[in-house]
């Protein structure tokens, strides 16, 4: 049967992998190409790169990184950050990305999701949703790296993105991100129950039980984590063995 995926995520700026806490306080984690190769050797199921560079001047750096990684790593690569138009999707796919993640621009211009999925196929369009709890059982979508409230309900927004052609949802809890206390399982469950397309849980992983909970309690199809892998606390292989012991289907 289909395995649950474990996806290390690399936030990239100025050619380096960094990690923040609740979207701020960046800490250097190393060279993206080297880190990608290491995760591939450890059995990562996919890799996600988020270009968190604010200025467009440094945009070419991410293309170069993706090209280098794609030459050496034969698993799916997702790239997000700064995708504003269909041509940005094309450029990232040309550089070697297999999927492109769209976040802020999906809110600003939902038609972009439909156009990109129509042109390149839903399989390569991931819509990233950053959500914050606003009431019990209610989450709001934020954009611009979590700085801007949109007034959109996260579950409804996810359903709309599915309708427009998203192939997958990357769901990040802003409340949990960087806190190492585990995913927002209620949010994950609410979104995954509402959708037919796969959902990647993100934000808050501090230990291996958190990853397992994302699948067993949150219902996620894939789990994404950054710092527990970057700083050597756990390998991807350890994470998979831990999940397998709990009866979760993984690729060992």
């Amino acid at each position: 049967m289909l395995a649950k995926r474990i996806i290390p995520c690399m936030d990239v700026t100025a050619g380096r992998v960094v990690k923040g806490v609740s979207f701020v306080e960046l800490r250097d984690a190393g060279d993206p190409v080297e880190i990608a190769r290491r995760y591939d050797e450890q059995g990562a199921d996919e890799l996600t790169f988020l270009d968190i560079t604010a200025s467009s001047d440094d945009r070419s750096i991410i293309f170069h990184i993706i090209e280098k990684v794609a030459e050496q790593v034969f698993i799916p690569l997702t790239v997000g950050g700064g995708v504003r138009e269909v041509q940005d999707v094309r450029n990232l796919l040309n550089a070697g990305a297999d999927k492109v993640s769209i976040n802020t621009s999906a809110v600003v211009n939902p038609q972009l999701v439909a156009d990109a999925a129509g042109r390149y196929g839903s399989q390569c369009i991931v819509v990233a949703i950053d959500a914050k709890q606003v009431a019990p059982g209610k989450w709001e979508v934020f954009t611009h790296g979590g700085r801007k409230a949109t007034g959109l309900d996260a579950v409804e927004w996810a359903k709309k993105m599915q309708t427009l052609g998203a192939g997958e949802i990357l769901l990040t809890s802003m409340d949990q991100d960087g806190q190492k206390k585990g995913f927002d399982l209620a949010l994950t469950r609410a979104v995954t129950d509402a959708l037919e397309i796969p959902v990647i849980a993100s934000g808050g992983v501090g230990n291996l039980q958190h990853l397992a909970d994302g699948v067993t309690k949150g219902g996620a199809d894939a789990v994404l984590a950054a710092s527990i892998f970057h700083f050597g606390e756990y390998t991807v292989q350890q994470a998979k063995q831990y999940m397998a012991q709990q009866g979760i289907e993984v690729r060992l």
Partner: peptide, 17 residues
């Protein structure tokens, strides 16, 4: 649905034996 009654997503995306 799978044998444990969990929802199976479409597209079928990921690693399968």
């Amino acid at each position: 649905k799978d044998a444990q009654d969990n929802k199976l997503k479409v597209p079928h995306m990921g690693w399968n034996g």
